[in-house]
């Protein structure tokens, strides 16, 4: 029961406490305008370079933008506590770690999902890309799966934040890597072989591929394997994150690196 409360109520409370972006002045530019311009930018670059079509860039970049809340908000669950000086209070609390951190992940997943869906919808209208209504439910599932797996990676980032101070820099770097490797703007086949190999182990790669196939009219059966891989990667990263959290927490107590200043 306590764990369930920590999971839901604790998660939501900390989400609201750590992010001052729940105001329209932050929400609209960050989560609506930026993702849309991101899509337009790459669609136009694609036209200039003579590659892909608008739908390709629409889907890749809309889904990529789910990663922004997933990576930054998750990474900030530790970094933000450190900045506020509440990290030692959190670590010295008796709350079980798994519900504590998974609870923090839930609102973040929803956030990422909504960002990507809005970007997808508005981007489609602006670029005049038609996405048949029948594909929307399956697309939504693919987007949700991507938000989940990115948040798993974000949880790993949160764990690293116990040791690394510049969490935002790290989240930016991960975002940049996803943008290049995960087949967002450049198909895996056009990448050097080693990059493609790395991409297969990153979140988003399989989910974006699934979303593109769905938009092109494939049935759900065709993409089931991709979605399962995406989910498995998310679970894997989240599990690694929780393990690393437990280990670093012990280490930081031993070596007193859990400073708050």
């Amino acid at each position: 029961m306590t764990s369930l409360r920590i999971l839901f109520i604790g998660g939501l409370t900390s989400y609201r406490a750590l992010f001052n972006w729940l105001t329209p002045w932050v929400l609209i530019p960050t989560f609506i305008l930026s993702p849309i311009v991101h899509i337009l930018l790459f669609a136009y670059i694609g036209r200039t370079a003579g590659v892909g079509d608008d739908r390709y860039f629409l889907i890749g970049n809309a889904v990529l933008n789910a990663a922004i809340p997933c990576l930054f908000a998750m990474g900030n669950t530790i970094g933000g506590e450190r900045n506020q000086g509440t990290l030692p209070l959190l670590i010295s609390s008796p709350a079980k770690r798994v519900p504590l951190f998974l609870g923090r992940a839930l609102p973040v997943i929803v956030n990422g999902f909504v960002v990507a869906v809005v970007a997808l919808g508005v981007g489609a209208v602006l670029l005049g890309v038609s996405l048949p209504t029948a594909t929307w439910p399956a697309l939504a599932i693919a987007v949700a799966v991507c938000s989940f797996s990115c948040t798993g990676l974000g949880l790993l980032g949160a764990a690293v934040a116990l040791r690394v101070r510049e969490t935002a820099v790290m989240s930016n770097v991960i975002f940049g890597i996803l943008m290049i490797f995960a087949g967002v703007n450049v198909p895996l086949l056009a990448l050097p072989g080693w990059m493609g190999a790395v991409a297969n182990w990153l979140p988003l790669t399989h989910g974006i591929e699934a979303a593109r196939q769905l938009a092109a009219g494939s049935g759900f059966a065709a993409i089931r394997a991709d979605l399962f891989t995406e989910i498995a990667l998310g679970v894997g990263y989240a599990g690694l994150g929780l393990l690393l959290l437990a280990w670093l927490e012990r280490e930081s107590r031993r070596k007193s690196t859990l400073d708050t200043a």
Binding site: F42, I45, G46, A49, G50, V51, G52, N172, V173, F175, G176, I177, M179, I180, V184, N185, V186, P187, A190, L191
Partner: peptide, 18 residues
Amino acid sequence: LWPLFFATTIFLMFRQGN
């Protein structure tokens, strides 16, 4: 680093477009 991520993507796209 940040602009390099975008530059890399752009270079890859242009290269893909020959």
